[in-house]
Design a protein around this nucleic acid. Structure first.
Lengths: 86, 86
DNA sequence: TTTTATTATTACCAAAAGGTAATAAAAGGG
DNA sequence: CCCTTTTATTACCTTTTGGTAATAATAAAA
């Protein structure tokens, strides 16, 4: 399989945003229409983004634009990940 | 589960775009970094969008913007879909 | 019309994302 | 400090998405 491009979220930005708006992960999750665990895992880098998260966020937080919150990340084909040198 | 928002693609627009650019589904798939079957299923409404499709498209086709190709769709919680009357 | 190549569709399976519910951690109130 | 409430984390399972490969459909060439 060739190189693909995933969408990733700027977690530091989003965490700061939630703090500035005094929103808990659960409140945020409820607003964008996903479960609190989904939000938690995404903020902690344990899950990639799905269409629900992206859509829910952009649809419900009009002060957050795609460019502001998300970016692209090149994913190498299976088995070609960069290995740790340690 | 509450109402969630999915991202959907304007299939008519995208199909017309591919024709205008003389791109087959396979060529398009290769460019955006997903398999041809993924493209086919999305164009025919048999699959929802994933982050790879969205990211691959926006990253590789700079004349296509998020607003131009995608839109939002409210999904009702499981078991609350609108039933056919027939 | 048969053969070959390209394009589109789908069955099958693997990987990833999402939810529920249980648990842990943190914050307040007494 | 103990009890309660809110918030965050994760184990377990279900649903959805993605790829490969097989098949079907279409087109182009001889």
């Amino acid at each position: 399989m060739k190189n693909s491009v995933d969408i990733v979220v700027n977690t530091d930005f989003l965490k700061a945003y939630l703090i500035s708006k005094q929103l808990s992960e659960s409140e945020f999750a409820k607003t964008i229409g996903v479960s609190h665990s989904t939000v938690n895992r995404i903020l902690n880098g344990k899950r990639n983004l799905g269409s629900k998260f992206i859509g829910g966020l952009l649809k419900n937080f009009h002060d957050l634009s795609f460019e502001l919150v998300f970016s692209y990340e090149n994913k190498l084909p299976k088995g070609n990940e960069v290995q740790s040198v340690i």
